[in-house]
Design a protein around this nucleic acid. Structure first.
Lengths: 167, 167
DNA sequence: ATAAACTGTATCTATTATAATTACACTAAT
DNA sequence: ATTAGTGTAATTATAATAGATACAGTTTAT
């Protein structure tokens, strides 16, 4: 699944963890390890679906649109239109093969149902419930996911729009 | 999801629809609209998991390894290791952010469960049950998926290794 | 034994999808 | 009027995917 989804969720978690404060794309981008323009693009999509509210101009930024108990992962998933289970068919020019068309139709239906099931599952996960879990999580538990690199703090790479600061 | 999965499933359906006959990568590739080398690569993976048997040399090719009622989509899914629900995180060099690590751990767990659910669902679909559905499928039902192009039979593009023929 | 028709596999190239970068118009607060 | 923001588009860079080609090895038929 592309990283727009994880960025969106991560941003929402950050917003929910400090609901009183307005977050700029710059400060969010440092949290989620990408660049401000990408954060703005993704947050724009969330705004269009009401998941966050934005404010332009000096001191502007992003806030949760709903209470964190009402925002669930299915909403986010649909907003960034992941289509993780969309099947990919090899049919260069397209039609002309009715046999392929039948196979494709049956399979697409099967995976449409799978996607519905997935979304039903994701509805159970609210940003709130994620925050809860995250609090219970022991420190640095997924070191096996990626090897620790030699030079840690070289990631001043995305500190554009710095001034906003953290707190 | 990448097209290896649909190619694998489509090939298995073709094999199951004519279980008495040996299919070459060339004839399969024409059925599934890709090239013989790709078919061979994917079928090799299926062979390593016992889903098909292969025979090299003249008159060789592919056959179903199990009865078509025993081959289900979860097996295929795992064989081509789709990981359609694998989350994609932005963390250039990796570690160094324990907060990200906790978020990631919780989310990865949630989606691990989602993937398990998906596989459970896919286990219900055998190649047999797909064939059944395909037979019931009315002709050319998914014309809305792709626009009908002007020049139909221009797809002699992958007719390398021709000699094997169809029947 | 030799040629033909296959698989198995690797490598290179082309294409497409994804992400980063840059730029700039617009907005709001100071 | 300046500063610090969003919104958005366009461009470039990078990574993932798929196609093309090549060739060694295998089996069958002649």
């Amino acid at each position: 699944m592309n990283s727009e989804f994880t960025i969106a969720v991560h941003c929402l978690i950050v917003l929910a963890s400090a609901p009183d404060r307005v977050w700029s794309s710059g400060s969010l981008s440092r949290k989620v390890h990408t660049n401000p323009a990408r954060v703005r693009k993704i947050m724009s999509a969330l705004r269009r679906n009401g998941l966050v509210t934005t404010k332009e101009g000096l001191g502007g930024g992003y806030r949760l649109g709903f209470s964190s108990g009402d925002v669930n992962l299915a909403l986010v998933y649909r907003t960034v239109s992941c289509e993780a289970l969309k099947l990919n068919w090899c049919s260069d020019d397209g039609a002309g093969d009715p046999e392929l068309a039948r196979v494709r139709s049956v399979m697409d239906q099967a995976f449409c149902r799978a996607e519905t099931m997935l979304e039903t599952y994701l509805e159970q996960w609210t940003i709130d419930s994620l925050l809860e879990q995250i609090k219970c999580e022991p420190d640095v538990p997924i070191s096996d996911h990626f090897p620790v690199s030699a030079h840690k703090d070289k990631s001043t790479k995305y500190n554009i729009n710095r001034i906003g600061g953290e707190g």
